[in-house]
Design a protein around this nucleic acid. Structure first.
Lengths: 207, 207
DNA sequence: CCTCGCGCTAACAATCATGTTAAACAAATA
DNA sequence: TATTTGTTTAACATGATTGTTAGCGCGAGG
């Protein structure tokens, strides 16, 4: 089934994803990726020639995903508050499915100029796009006196901050003995709503 | 002067700090640390025996610093709002002086169970301490109807989130060509105040 | 002046990780 | 069946990295 259908190349990429996401580029060993994939390690070089090529394939995909998590649809026919809510919830849900994603991206761009440029190239366009839309939305609402006149960049940073940090903290604190999934899930849902409320409350106008 | 007074051991530790903080454990090479320190690389092994010993020395110190950044003094005779403000500002200022600190800690605990335990051992006590104090403070204020009844853990996570993420974003976006320091500093001061205001606004009671 | 111990160096050892290659194999095609 | 093509394997080559060790130099204390 399914698994069997995957080509060797795809199997390797999946294994690479797993290992790179868990250990980072430098600590990951090509031999381990091969072992996880269940193939001879020469196959990695046959298909990708170098560890770095293989990594870049994974990294670009993950950077894209990270970018998508930001670029929420702001064009829906919703009130501003509900747009914010939807954006926060969508972002949060993507992180639920990819809890190690932000830390992975950040760790990698920390030590390498090239990877930083790669990530910027992929992520920045989406970020600036959503920033523009948000800016328009804020202007309108401020004009109507509905929200506090916050800087768009500050708002977006705050939105992603609280969501992302939720998962960094959970990762960091997660014991070897993981809690049952449904309890974890419930806790995350609470935190999601808390984050939304937090952002929305901070937006209320002064008087 | 100063530099000359340092023992070889101290020189090595400083160099190790620099290299480990920039590249992370796995990507850092002992030979590079030796080169940066300007000593024969056998000295590293003479004083610390292994790369891991040397790293742990650095890591424990940095984890301690990270912990301190959280455990702000909540015993000052200040209003609750001003305690929050002071905590945020102190935390932020420590990060100004150590912008790569959070990402360094997070990256390292991401891939290694041992390091995660190490960090928890050092950081958790301080975190729980400040959490307790914060909990008391919140209870009182909520009773008086001064603030929204937020979960203490949520509040503290939000406080550190926005501060820490400021620096992660700045690190990530920082160009090879750095802006002049004073401009950077001004920008950071603005963001600091924005963060404080953001947290304080979110605490205002509903009606 | 001797020597003891400490800091230090150069050279070496051992391991490990990445990457290559030649040949085996298997499936499709003539 | 023979050939071709793409895939896979084992075995090897290379280089990098961590760690060791034998001995040198030099200052302190006898």
């Amino acid at each position: 089934m399914k698994q069997e259908d995957l080509t060797t190349k795809q199997i390797i990429i999946r294994a690479a994803e797993q290992v790179f996401m868990n250990k980072g580029y430098a600590a990951a060993k090509t031999t381990e990726i091969a072992r996880v994939a269940g193939v001879n390690h020469a196959m990695l070089h046959y298909y990708f020639r170098t560890k770095e090529n293989l990594f870049n394939m994974v990294f670009e995909q993950k950077a894209g995903l990270f970018g998508s998590s930001l670029s929420t649809v702001f064009d829906r026919p919703l009130s501003f508050r509900n747009k914010i809510r939807l954006a926060m919830e969508t972002h949060f849900d993507i992180l639920v499915a990819n809890p190690r994603l932000p830390l992975f991206i950040f760790s990698e761009i920390m030590g390498s100029e090239e990877k930083r440029e790669m990530a910027k190239r992929i992520i920045l366009p989406k970020a600036t796009d959503v920033l523009q839309k948000l800016t328009k939305g804020i202007r309108k609402e401020v004009a109507k006196g509905n929200i506090y006149p916050i800087e768009p960049l500050d708002l977006i940073l705050n939105m992603v901050s609280v969501n992302i940090f939720t998962f960094i903290a959970f990762e960091a604190l997660s014991d070897a003995i993981k809690r049952p999934d449904h309890e974890m899930a419930k806790r995350l849902q609470l935190r999601k709503e808390s984050n939304v409320q937090f952002i929305l409350r901070s937006l209320k106008p002064d008087k």
